[in-house]
């Protein structure tokens, strides 16, 4: 079968004022796979995510979502294909979980019409998938960090996207809740066929759950490849400046990485 690319990035460069933040990035995202972007602080990971999600306008280059330039697309059209879980979800809103998930249907509606039965079914499915049934009438500002992240995720999947972008979805969570989110993301990929692109800090999570890793260093893509290819190849030593030790996870056969010391 031919490879189908949901997302293509051609020669993308972005600057804040005169400072370049990412330079000449080319990237192809294949349908149905999980990709993790890793790299040191300030390497441009979040900037890349914000450019893909249309929050930053590139200086040169383009982002193609199913062969259409995202900046030539209607915002709603893009939102029907691509959903984003943002990094900082501070909000003055005191919306309930259920209402928040209903906002996920916004792009599928016209302003004059309310929810129809299909919308309600999808909202119900999103709440069930994220195990939020018991919390659906709670306000999001009363939830714990892990619960809240699940609520935002439920909102994103209610968009029924083909591709889901996640910007550090686990950073502020404890270990159990981190795993919970990673398992959920992996489930969505397997069961719903959603293509996943995420920025992760935890390299072991990235290695365990991704089909491919994208390593970014100094505003550019340093290397892209399978977890084994990336972790074995001393890439991390060069990129993060740490001495590494790699072992194999007996159960998943994925590489496990341990940072021994700073080089």
């Amino acid at each position: 079968m031919d490879k189908r690319f949901v997302l293509k990035i051609n020669d993308l460069s972005i600057s804040y004022k005169d400072v370049k933040v990412i330079e000449h990035i080319d990237l192809e995202i294949e349908e149905g796979k999980i990709y993790s972007i890793i790299g040191p602080n300030g390497s441009g990971k979040t900037t890349l995510m914000r450019a893909i999600s249309r929050s930053l306008k590139p200086k040169t280059g383009q982002v193609l979502l199913e062969d259409t330039n995202i900046f030539k697309m209607n915002t709603k059209e893009a939102a029907r294909k691509m959903a984003i879980l943002c990094q900082n979800n501070h909000t003055m809103s005191d919306v309930t979980v259920k209402n928040l998930v209903q906002y996920g249907r916004f792009a599928h509606k016209e302003w004059w019409r309310g929810s129809n039965s299909e919308d309600s079914k999808i909202v119900e499915w999103a709440i069930k998938t994220t195990s939020l049934e018991a919390l659906q009438n709670r306000k999001i500002n009363t939830l714990s960090g892990g619960e809240r992240q699940r609520a935002w995720l439920a909102m994103s999947i209610a968009q029924k996207p083909k591709i889901l972008l996640l910007d550090e979805p686990t950073t502020f969570l404890d270990i159990a809740h981190q795993l919970e989110i990673m398992e959920l993301v992996s489930h969505l990929n397997r069961e719903e066929g959603i293509t996943i692109v995420m920025v992760l800090h935890d390299i072991n999570h990235a290695a365990r759950y991704s089909d491919e890793l994208i390593v970014i260093k100094n505003k550019k893509i340093f290397k892209k490849g399978t977890p084994w290819a990336i972790l074995e190849d001393n890439v991390l030593r060069e990129v993060f400046g740490v001495e590494t030790e790699i072992t194999r996870d007996k159960e998943t056969n994925k590489p496990i990485f341990y940072a021994r010391k700073v080089v």
Binding site: R54, S55, R80, M82, N89, S93, L100, Y103
Partner: peptide, 23 residues
Amino acid sequence: IIFSQKLNILILGDDVARGLGLN
């Protein structure tokens, strides 16, 4: 009143609102 729902989405934050399809 007609467009109140759009403001509800806007106060979630710019990036989130854009991701949901709000201009």
